[in-house]
Nucleic acid binder design. Structure first.
Lengths: 331, 331
DNA sequence: AAGCATTACGGCGTACGTAATGATT
DNA sequence: AATCATTACGTACGCCGTAATGCTT
């Protein structure tokens, strides 16, 4: 009340009255939605008691709802003569809308239930290009085919997309996530890093027998990594870690380009084993210091933390886990 | 609880569970309508606080509503990061329906308001044919023309139509109504009854000087009246009433037919003055015992008792009262 | 620092059930 | 007699506001 009084001092009386009325109107509008639905049920069943049974309330409740609705609307909606209900003109018109209202609400609910409980709709997956081509698509190929109702979007970027903004359901990343508690990370499998170069390069420059030798060499740097031009190794004897900082002149954010640069002999590159499997097999690239393992990365599937994921998301995660659990240990 | 237990004893557990679930579902459905509307507002305004202001509640309330909705639906509808709201796929789909729901509800309300506050839609009037032709149409002619948005239905019957069943807004009757408290009767004006006959008839049969002379005569009876073959008079000297029972051989429920029978000399008839004005003027019929007035009828406008009539009804009643108040006293 | 969303908590309001009444078949 | 709608009344539940907290810009 004091609020209203204050407002009256600063604004014109009329506008205040109007806006207060508006608000009041709105609130009553909300209150009446349930009554409108009850009204629709009553009209459909042509009986207060039948509607009450359907709705799981007493006829008393129904009667009170209709009365309240009529009072609020300021008009008689139906004439009731104990055995027979008959709509007024207003009631008839109003029923149309109530009916539509209920229908829209029911449709909304059923659609949501469907999206929650069936593998339908859209599934949006964020990955990097290489991961996507090399592993995600193979991992999901069969699963995708068995769910023709599901549209799958691969949002392929070399940066970490914001899950919320881009509506990503599942993101596949090497980093376990940004320590954001709104997300949950599930490790999928372990990927190994290797250092490699083209045969030409290795032939041309100083031989590499130990990590220390690397300091004479040039690195093609992947910008997305924390320390692009640094290499970490695990001593095969002691198990201790050691880091070597290389020179880097070429930088890129694209693995394909990096591979291209590497195969043409521009330098060494640190890359995931899975990204160069083919090139290693056909001799285009050669692993450097194979006896010095580098620390691996873990591939994570990230989702937003929810108490209840849509079924399609959990099923997709299952399919991913299933696939990766079958892979051999050395990737 | 005891109720449910009893039900379980009499029916199969499964069916009971289902039906109980159904009911529960329905009730929650009703509860959620308001939440769905709130959700729609939030999405539209892209803000909890803005929606709250619009709706005249606190953000706290809005937050609780959305939470409740999400819990009930078992799914996240929107991701909220303090400054930004973003719908999930389910939320997007759900919003569509909520939007439609709100729209239907608003449309229903505005339509009802229109029907209540404007002279639009349908107006259903019940009368007898003669009343309609002789008085109602003339009374409303101008008013009807000034409301082109209004459709007027004349339900013309020689019996008293059930107002509810036939959706009559206004009934015009001679009897003040069936003492039904669900209706309200407004007297419009006083109509006089007269006794008349054709000149041929009067010339052919015994002269009529006093009411007692009538007992020698034959009456054409209007079935719809309480005592069709009886005539009541008011003694012009003493003011006392006296009744005379005439013979009646011809019965009908139609005034036009009655007039036709009367003009062809089949007998006397008791009729409203307004129904034979023309015939009296051109000499086709002659009033009998003009110095002995008969008790008049009152023309009533009957409506169903409502706390609030649609505007068109009250306006129509006004037009009728207006018209009849202008008429000369002797009808 | 200001605006926004969330949560816990408690009080108020109300919607519902119970029971009695009236109406209709 | 049975079913249905209405009303009065009291209670229990749920909704919302207050206040405190955390988060973002």
């Amino acid at each position: 009340m004091s609020k209203a009084t204050l407002a009256q001092l600063s604004k014109s009386t009329k506008s205040v009255t109007d806006s207060a009325g508006q608000v009041r109107q709105q609130r009553n509008f909300l209150e009446n939605l349930r009554n409108m639905a009850v009204f629709a049920y009553v009209v459909e069943r042509r009986s207060f008691s039948a509607a009450a049974r359907d709705l799981g309330v007493t006829t008393s409740a129904v009667s009170q709802q209709i009365r309240a609705l009529e009072e609020e609307m300021g008009i008689v909606l139906m004439h009731r003569s104990t055995r027979k209900l008959s709509l007024t003109e207003s009631g008839e018109a109003f029923y149309q809308s109530c009916q539509e209202m209920v229908e829209a609400a029911e449709q909304g609910r059923s659609r949501v239930n469907e999206l929650r409980d069936d593998v339908v709709g859209d599934l949006r997956i964020a990955t990097t290009p290489e991961l996507c081509v090399n592993h995600i698509v193979p991992a999901l190929s069969q699963w995708m085919q068995s769910h023709p109702q599901l549209n799958i979007h691969f949002e392929v970027e070399n940066k970490n997309i914001d899950l919320i903004e881009s509506r990503i359901d599942i993101a596949l990343r090497m980093s376990p996530g940004l320590a954001d508690s709104s997300m949950v990370a599930r490790p999928l499998f372990q990927v190994n890093q290797i250092l490699c170069a083209s045969p030409e390069y290795l032939a041309r420059y100083a031989p590499i027998k130990t990590p220390e030798d690397l300091q004479q060499h040039t690195m093609i740097a992947m910008e997305l990594l924390k320390e692009p031009s640094q290499c970490e190794f695990i001593d095969p004897v002691t198990g201790k870690r050691l880091s070597v900082l290389l020179n880097a002149r070429l930088f890129t954010n694209n693995v394909f380009l990096m591979k291209s640069l590497c195969t043409t002999g521009q330098g060494l590159m640190r890359v995931l084993h899975i990204d160069v499997q083919k090139e290693l097999a056909n001799g285009e690239l050669i692993e450097v210091l194979p006896e010095w393992p580098m620390p691996g990365y873990t591939l994570y599937a990230l989702t937003l933390r929810r108490e209840r994921q849509p079924l399609k998301v959990t099923r997709c995660l299952e399919a991913l886990l299933q696939h990766f659990s079958q892979l051999p240990i050395r990737h």
